[in-house]
Design a protein around this nucleic acid. Structure first.
Lengths: 185, 185
DNA sequence: AATATTAGTATCGAATCGAAACTAAATTAA
DNA sequence: TTAATTTAGTTTCGATTCGATACTAATATT
C-alpha cells in the first residue's frame, strides 16, 4: 500500500535526521524525542508515565532515557506538591535552547514551506484524521490539546476548566499536550 | 509546528506496532522494515548497499540486520553473476508469507479505509510532495518506481528501457523501488 | 489496618547502532 | 600491465535502547 510506503519513508528520514541533529548535542533520537514531548506537555503529562504513554515504551526503559536527559542537564526533576509519588520533568533553559535550534528539523521545516497554503491545510487535515483513527484503533492515548478535548470548558475570557481534573486552566495551559485528552465528538 | 508533531506521533505509532507485530515472528522493527523494503526493491536495489541507503544506517549495522534475517530464513543471499562483489538479497517464501500477514499493519490499513476516496487521494498527493521535497533537501535517495523516473523509456507494449543501466525492463520490473530513481521534472 | 494500585527505580540480557579495521573484487590511473 | 583507488560486504568493539522482572515508596481502596 502506497500510504504505508510513504509514511514509512518519512519516518525513516525523520529518524535519520534526529540521529544527525542529536549527535551534535550527544543525544540519541529517542532522547531528543522525549525532550521535545516534555517541552510540549502540560502538568498532567510531564511525568515519567506521560512520556511512557507517549513513546509507547515500558517505564523501565523510559526511566533510563530520562536519567540520561537529567544527567546532561536538559531536564530537571520536580516532586509534585500534592502526590509524593509523582515527579514532574521540567525542561531546563539549556534544553529549551537546544530544542529551539533542533526542532522541528530543517528538512521538515523547508518541505513544509515548500507547500502552498491550500496544500498545507489539506495535509494537516488529512494527517489529523489519519492519526485520530489510528489512535482509536490502536488504543493509544490521544495526546491532544484542550481545544479539541471533551473535558474542556470555557469559563471566561482566556479562562478554562477541566472537568476531569476539576482544575482551572489558563490559556497557555490549554495549548499544551495532555495525555488525558479525549476527542470531543 | 503541527506537521512535525503529527508525523512524529504517527511514526511512533508505527514503531510501536512494528514492535508488536515483529514479536510474533521474533523480529525487531528494523528487521521487519528491511524485509519489507527488500520485497519491494528491484534488482539494482536488493543489496546491502540498497538497504543501507534506504534505511539511512551504516553498512556495518545493516550487515548484522541482514545476517539475522538470513539466519531466520526470511532472505537468501544470491551472488551477482556479473559483479563478484555484489550479493542480491531475495525474500524467501517464508519471508513473503510473513509480510503478507504483517504488512501493512492492520492499524494503518483500517485508518486508510476509514478515509473517503477523495481524502485518500489528497493525502497521498500531499505526502508524496512532502516526501519528495524532504528527500531533495536531505540528499537522500528517492527510491521511487520507474514510472516517475527520468531514466525510464517506454520501448513497446509493456516493455521499458533504463537509460542509466542500459537494460531492458519488464512491466513488473518498473513497479519495484529503485535506489537510482530520479524524479522526472 | 490490611490490601491493592500507582509512580518511579535498578538490574539483566538481547538487540541496535556507529566507528573503525578488515577482505575481496572491480575500476581507474600510470 | 601494474599500482592505486573505489566499491561491496564482513567483523569486532563499546555505548545505548529496549523489555522483563523485581524492587521501593506513596496513595487509594476495602
Amino acid at each position: 500500500m502506497l500510504l504505508h510506503e510513504y509514511i514509512e519513508r518519512i519516518s525513516r528520514l525523520l529518524d535519520s535526521e534526529a540521529r544527525l541533529i542529536g549527535s551534535d548535542y550527544n543525544l540519541q533520537p529517542i532522547q531528543l524525542n522525549a525532550l521535545n514531548f516534555l517541552n510540549r506537555a502540560n502538568r498532567y503529562s510531564n511525568t515519567l508515565q506521560g512520556v511512557t504513554a507517549y513513546l509507547g515504551l515500558t517505564k523501565g526503559t523510559v526511566s533510563q532515557t530520562l536519567a540520561t536527559l537529567e544527567a546532561k542537564g536538559f531536564i530537571k526533576k520536580i516532586p509534585d506538591k500534592n502526590d509524593g509519588r509523582v515527579v514532574h520533568l521540567n525542561v531546563t533553559r539549556a534544553g529549551q535552547k537546544l530544542l529551539s535550534k533542533a526542532m522541528p528539523s530543517a528538512t521538515v521545516q523547508s518541505a513544509w514551506e515548500g507547500l502552498e497554503d491550500k496544500e498545507q491545510k489539506q495535509l494537516i487535515e488529512s494527517l489529523k484524521q489519519l492519526l485520530t483513527t489510528m489512535q482509536k484503533i490502536n488504543g493509544m492515548n490521544g495526546f491532544g490539546v484542550c481545544g479539541t478535548c471533551r473535558y474542556n470548558q470555557k469559563i471566561g475570557e482566556k479562562k478554562f476548566f477541566c472537568e476531569l481534573t476539576q482544575e482551572n486552566l489558563s490559556q497557555k495551559d490549554t495549548e499544551l499536550l495532555c495525555r488525558e485528552h479525549q476527542l470531543a465528538c
